[in-house]
């Protein structure tokens, strides 16, 4: 048991190292959200409101979600596909490392990464733009994004189940960008056409953002949104489990 704990921690540590060293991760999950936040919060005036919420904190939430989603879709999916393509997973099956330890270490590492992204973006925006929100709202919205962010791990593992790492990189980027735009992370959904707004409501990115926008607007936890996110997790996991099972059978 002691060895397994030690192995899980080492595995987790390796995940963190690989993520921090990944330039794509640093760009999409840290630099881009912070830069976008400062650019688009400055172009609009300080008293602009979106859906009765102040634009600046609204956009901070959008960008935090954008960073968290990017960490799962670009770097997590890429790490998975690389491991599978390079025979690493196959090699791990020959070691006494239990598969639950492998999965757990991925979850813990992604949890730490997402938490760091939330802290960095919140601090950059909160301090840089003097956003004045009650501590409880900071905490609630941060927790919402953190917990909801795990659902994108399921989407990341679905994309990462493909064997070709180059195709994974491209597909992940396309899915990431389109979900971010359609989900209203770049521009609020209220600026979209009616049809697009309807589609937007069904995206997981919108649901993750909506929960946070709702909280900073003085609302309470969006249980409906949580339910939709959970449904997505289920669907992504079932499909990726099916794909991986098919690949094993060969």
């Amino acid at each position: 048991m002691n060895t397994t704990m030690k192995a899980t921690m080492a595995q987790c540590n390796a995940e963190l190292l690989r993520t921090v060293r990944n330039r794509r991760f640093v760009f999409f999950s840290v630099i881009m959200p912070v830069a976008f936040f400062f650019i688009f919060s400055s172009t609009a005036g300080n008293d602009v409101k979106v859906d009765n919420v102040d634009w600046v904190p609204y956009y901070l939430m959008s960008m935090t979600v954008y960073g968290v989603v990017g960490a799962s879709l670009t770097s997590f999916a890429q790490r998975l596909s690389r491991e599978r393509a390079q025979g690493w997973v196959r090699l791990l099956r020959l070691t006494p490392l239990p598969s639950w330890s492998y999965v757990l270490s991925k979850l813990v590492a992604q949890g730490i990464i997402n938490l760091l992204i939330i802290l960095v973006v919140f601090m950059a925006g909160g301090i840089g733009k003097h956003i004045d929100l009650p501590a409880s709202v900071w905490l609630e919205s941060g927790l919402w994004i953190w917990i909801g962010g795990f659902s994108f791990m399921a989407l990341g593992s679905l994309i990462g189940s493909m064997r070709n790492p180059d195709a994974v990189q491209l597909l992940a980027l396309i899915v990431y960008m389109s979900l971010s735009i359609v989900g209203g992370l770049w521009f609020p959904t209220s600026s979209m056409s009616g049809a697009l707004q309807t589609i937007s409501k069904f995206t997981p990115t919108y649901r993750l953002g909506q929960g946070a926008w709702n909280l900073i607007g003085g609302g309470s936890i969006d249980w409906n949104g949580l339910l939709i996110l959970a449904a997505y997790v289920l669907v992504f996991m079932v499909i990726s489990a099916y794909i991986m099972k098919k690949q094993e059978a060969v």
Partner: peptide
């Protein structure tokens, strides 16, 4: 318990990125 007593080098090149 058996796996902990063996070691294997498969045909795939088993390296991991960014480590």
């Amino acid at each position: 318990r058996i796996k902990s007593r063996i070691g294997a080098m498969l045909q795939d090149v088993s390296v991991i990125d960014n480590l």
